[in-house]
């Protein structure tokens, strides 16, 4: 049975070996936007090394806000977020931003440099790596996403699918312990979507991916977390959660109605 739990009671069963390290540890995170609008109400989440987890829920559920907390863009020094065992203190921030590769939904926000190389090099350069290493990492990251040879291209001349892959490369070049992707397949045509799914499947990195694409969840992510109204409302193995159409519908999600479920 999947764990369908109240906000504050956490422990989700880690499917990996017990000695695996905890990559994300969020304990009872609450956040209210400056306008007074509550976005997160006691979110707890724990993700182990090597896990690929889908984060689903309707728009405004708090998924993006949670993601912004994971590398300290939101949340102060008292943030109840630990990444690889480290608290999000001011001193830890540069390190944690290297550990958490955050890829925004719109690649035009993510790719802010005129050329592809400059963008992929931005992260490692700001980690303080020497130039030779930065170039090496950039080349490797582009190769990983199948965009080798695009170094000199202008970002605005890429297709959406290419932009999304370069956006992933911009964080892979930082050698993160964890990839956090916001809606990676949104807006892609079927071929672009297939390529991206293939890429996500082959990347040997811990992943937390927010998406509305339930087929993607079913295909790629063994574990699924459902958020609604700033809370985690369900957390468990994907096949079991997908087998509960009433749960999905209650939180504005599509049922796949697959024959094998």
């Amino acid at each position: 049975m999947p764990v369908v739990h109240a906000p504050a009671t956490v422990p989700s069963a880690p499917p990996t070996a017990p000695h695996a390290t905890v990559v994300i540890d969020v304990a009872d995170l609450t956040y209210t936007y400056p306008g007074g609008q509550p976005a997160l109400r006691g979110v707890s989440l724990r993700i182990m090394e090597g896990e690929k987890v889908a984060l689903v829920g309707p728009n405004g559920a708090g998924k993006s806000t949670l993601m912004l907390h994971l590398n300290g863009i939101l949340g102060g020094p008292a943030s109840p977020v630990h990444i690889c065992g480290r608290p999000l203190s001011r001193d830890n921030l540069p390190l944690i931003r290297g550990l958490v590769g955050l890829v925004f939904q719109n690649p035009d926000d993510q790719l802010f440099s005129p050329t592809v190389l400059e963008d992929v090099a931005f992260g490692p350069l700001h980690q303080g790596l020497p130039e030779a290493e930065v170039r090496q990492r950039a080349a490797r990251a582009l190769e990983q996403v199948g965009m080798a040879g695009f170094e000199g291209r202008l970002s605005h001349q890429l297709s959406l699918g290419q932009k999304k892959r370069v956006a992933i490369a911009t964080v892979l070049s930082m050698a993160p312990a964890l990839l956090v992707l916001d809606e990676p397949t949104a807006g892609l045509d079927p071929r672009g979507r297939r390529q991206l799914i293939g890429l996500l499947r082959d990347l040997p990195v811990t992943m937390l991916v927010s998406t509305h694409d339930m087929w993607l969840v079913d295909e790629l992510f063994p574990r699924m977390v459902i958020m609604d109204e700033g809370r985690v409302v369900a957390d468990g193995p994907t096949p079991e959660l997908l087998a509960q159409p009433s749960l999905l519908e209650a939180h504005g999600l599509e049922s796949l109605a697959l024959p094998h479920h």
Binding site: L68, N71, I73, P94, R97, G98, V100, L102, F104, D109, Q110, F112, L117, E118, A121, F122, G123, L125, H126, Q127, E131, V134, R135, T170, V171, M174
Partner: peptide, 15 residues
């Protein structure tokens, strides 16, 4: 935010 997420802290470095 996207810049911050990749370690930008006010100083822009370039190759």
């Amino acid at each position: 935010h996207a810049m911050q997420a990749r370690g930008y802290r006010g100083e822009l470095l370039t190759l």
